[in-house]
């Protein structure tokens, strides 16, 4: 159950069924809680550039950063 300031997002019903099953097995209280967790984790890839050591090492090797 989502509380507070939330909005509705439409997703495919079959995908939602799969998410609900995985959320249940993984111990999440609801599918919404699982989806929120997955999305927050995925967002970190885009918002936290500082942690990207793979790119940094490669760019150093190519001579594009010091």
């Amino acid at each position: 159950m989502l509380r507070g300031n939330s909005i509705k997002v439409k997703i495919d019903r079959d995908l939602h069924d799969r998410l609900r099953k995985v959320a249940d097995v993984a111990g999440y209280a609801t599918a919404e809680e699982f989806i929120t967790h997955v999305l927050e984790k995925e967002m970190l890839h885009f918002e936290d550039a500082g942690s990207d050591d793979d790119i940094r090492d490669r760019l150093k090797g190519l001579g594009y950063i010091s």
């Binding site: 890839h45 885009f46 550039a49 990207d52 793979d54 790119i55 490669r58």
Partner: peptide
């Protein structure tokens, strides 16, 4: 892994 990192970049 590099492709994924570049997509994110």
């Amino acid at each position: 892994a590099m492709k994924e990192a570049y997509r994110n970049d």
